[in-house]
Nucleic acid binder design. Structure first.
Lengths: 188, 188
DNA sequence: CGCCGAGTTGAACTGAATCAAGAAACGTGG
DNA sequence: CCACGTTTCTTGATTCAGTTCAACTCGGCG
């Protein structure tokens, strides 16, 4: 569970003792490409660490579907809405490749938070780091062009074009596949 | 400190003892309209509860400026970037009215987190709630029209048009003041 | 009373969406 | 491993929503 461990340790330093409490609750699972791991409008009892694979989160409106997150090795798949409020979330998370994940029950995690300050601080740091990432993504959409964000996305995930199809990336950038294709031809 | 207390208690239930630890660290301050409370590119040693007043957060690019948050009574002004990583943030927060705030040193807050599980969980919940709000705002920009988001914003803050000028709201919605003016005339 | 910032309205322009057709890549079964 | 069908990507022509530029109105304030 190399990638998952690295992720957990990177969030907030934990003693072996506390780390063991957390990792002993993880269950290894494998899922196939295109499986929907987390569903909108449903309270989600698990969160998942991606050990190997790729995923996307999306929301569906009446006539459209918008992808707003991609995840790879070491990232966490979860519906924050569901996890924080125990209310149905608005996001679906679907696998883009056959994947290996470690699942964790959210109720167990919350028990751990309530009984160990170290783990509670780990959970705080997790939420804070995700908050910053979300805020940065949000601000980037507000004042960088799709072309710039595309190039930054590639820098951040060099394997992206190989692993995620263009239409998904376009949706993430808030433009059509046609426009992204034109952006790419201009870069060349 | 009615609004501030309500906010603190609403995040996560705290015993009197822990609540007192937190509130004893608050300092009441008054600031005038147009003052910039939090500056970009600077590590920010305080966070602020808005007891009375209004504020906006914005980022500046080379040729543009984008407002991405409004805050009123009971909201918290802080640079999460600065608070979480102790690195310079990218956001400015400016007051839109003469305001009364309670300020809190972030280093004191972090000490409290490390010494009391209850407060650490309060901090976790704060980050989680802010995360959900940011994510919702982000997703709303991705798949609701500016017109719809304008109307939802008014529902959420009925006093908005009285307290915030149109150009600021337009910037928040990611459109020009001219376009927002036309949206308004169509609603009538 | 006149100035100034904020908001509205009109006309021209522009960049991205849509519509549409063709090329390339992908995988599935024989 | 090849052949065919389907999906993904590219490219061109047209349309349309929102920006820009500009003129005008309204309300407060020296």
């Amino acid at each position: 569970m190399e990638n998952t461990l690295k992720k957990i340790k990177g969030i907030y330093p934990l003693k072996e003792e506390h780390l063991a409490l957390l990792t002993s609750q993880l269950r290894r699972k494998t899922y196939a490409k295109n499986e929907v791991i987390i569903r909108a409008n449903k309270v989600e009892p698990y969160l998942y660490f991606i050990e190997k694979g790729a995923a996307m989160a999306f929301s569906e409106g009446i006539d459209n579907k918008v992808i707003f997150w991609f995840g790879f090795e070491g990232d966490i798949m979860m519906s924050y809405n569901s996890y924080v409020n125990q209310t149905p979330g608005y996001e679906n998370i679907e696998l883009l490749e056959d994947s290996v994940v470690y699942e964790l029950r959210t109720d167990i995690l919350i028990d751990l938070y309530n009984s160990h300050t170290a783990l509670s601080n780990w959970g705080r740091k997790l939420a804070e780091l995700e908050l910053i990432k979300t805020e940065e993504r949000y601000i980037a959409t507000l004042f960088k062009s799709a072309a710039v964000r595309y190039q930054e996305l590639l820098q951040h995930y060099p394997s992206l074009i190989k692993r995620v199809q263009l239409g998904h990336i376009a949706s993430y950038l808030g433009i059509t596949q046609v426009t992204l294709s034109r952006i790419r031809s201009e870069i060349r």
